[in-house]
Amino acid sequence: MNIENQVLGLIKLSDYIRAYLAKSTEEFNEDDSEFELLLKKSEIENPWFTIDNQKIAFQQWANLLTEQNIRNWIKDYSVSQISKRVGLILAGNIPLVGWHDVISVVLSNHIPVIKLSSKDKYVIPFLLKKWKEFSGDQVEYEFVDKLENFDAVIATGSNNTARYLEYYFKNHLNIIRKNRTSVAVLKGNETEEELKLLADDIFQYFGLGCRNVTRIFIPEDFLIDRLFESFIGYKDIINHHKYANNYDYNRAVYLLNQDKFWDNNFVMLKEDDKLFSPLSVINFSRYSSVDDVKKFITENEENIQCIVAKDELGFDSIHFGEAQNPGLDTYADNVDTMKFLEIV
């Protein structure tokens, strides 16, 4: 396969997505109408994949897959001279969550053998079809119901599923990903704009991604009301029936248990040391010393995907509002997928 044609095809795909997003339905051609129909089918079968959230994911990828970004990303990696079959078991918690693995395998000159998530089974096949078309048939891939005849595997699942996958694929080169989540550390001097951007890190995609913040560290004198004020832009999230069901259930549990929590009618804040929080709940804790926060993060490092914080706090962190905007060289579980694919 010709890597240069694949790169050019991927750039054209990005341009196509960008153009599609800019059109009104009256301007759609046949391909655009097919694409729009797949988005609607995805939302019908998986209500978490709203049309708006899917289009947010497409816009992020269109912005990311520029020629400069792609070439800067792949220039430091060697391309395999022999194409191998790399099994991909894709997740479906947020739209296009498996797309990075797919393009990584293709641009490493391997063949992705893809087991789609039942929650996200329409859009990736369409994107691959268009990429193949734009690259002059220089993209090879295969969709399967069960992985067989492969040389390596990249799989994503829950912690329980990961134990099974690790055993099942123990004789193959593999990357097995587990549950992760993200945290935010506030200093107390954040602007209102920064806190509104933190709301994006929490609520985008309903909080279902590993890069969504589920735990916040705040100074001892920080006012909880400041968080609720910054969240108000997401108040309509409660109108989504699946989110509302989670909110109602968790609120009822806390009331029955007489747990202390703060509530603004669409999200709850709970003072809790747990890293993971239920959907519609954000755990928080107060700190007197940043060293205590660093100790917690170090102890839970394998379960944390990213840290949102000000640079001055001294964490290896990202800026507010950037949790769902990783670069091409940002890898799930901090395992370099492209390096792995060099040795397949």
Rank of each mutant, 00 (worst) to 15 (best):
S230L: 01
K242Q: 12
I232E: 08
Y243R: 00
F231G: 00
N246M: 03
A244Q: 06
I232P: 04
F261E: 04
F228P: 05
Y247R: 11
D248G: 11
Y234I: 01
I238F: 02
K235G: 03
V253T: 05
D263K: 15
I238N: 03
D248E: 14
F231H: 05
I232T: 06
S230N: 13
D263I: 14
I237V: 11
Y249V: 03
A252Q: 07
N250S: 00
Y243L: 06
E229I: 08
F261V: 00
W262R: 07
H240L: 10
D236N: 14
N250Y: 13
Y249L: 05
D236K: 14
L256W: 04
H241N: 10
N250C: 00
D248Y: 15
Y234W: 12
D259A: 09
Y247M: 03
A244S: 12
Y249E: 09
Y243M: 08
L227M: 13
L227K: 13
L256E: 06
Y243A: 03
V253P: 03
S230C: 04
N257W: 08
L256F: 07
A252G: 02
F261S: 07
I237K: 12
K235F: 04
A244V: 01
L255T: 13
S230M: 04
H240E: 13
D248F: 15
Y247S: 01
H240I: 08
F228K: 04
N239S: 15
Y247G: 01
K235V: 03
D263N: 15
N245I: 07
N245V: 05
A244E: 15
A252M: 05
N257D: 11
K260L: 14
R226K: 14
K260A: 14
F231T: 01
N264H: 14
L256T: 15
Y247F: 04
V253E: 06
N257A: 08
K260Q: 15
N246Y: 11
N257T: 08
I232W: 06
E229H: 12
N239G: 06
Y249H: 05
I237E: 15
D236L: 08
D259Y: 14
N257H: 09
K242I: 07
D259F: 11
R251S: 10
R226D: 08
N246F: 06
Q258T: 11
G233P: 10
N257K: 08
D259R: 15
Y234N: 08
N250V: 00
K260C: 09
N239L: 11
R251P: 03
S230T: 10
D263L: 15
F261C: 01
H240M: 10
Q258S: 09
Y243N: 07
E229Q: 13
V253Q: 09
D259M: 07
N264A: 08
N246W: 02
Y243G: 00
R226P: 00
K235M: 06
A244W: 05
F228G: 02
L255W: 14
I238D: 12
Y254Q: 01
S230I: 01
D236V: 09
N245Q: 13
F231A: 06
D236W: 07
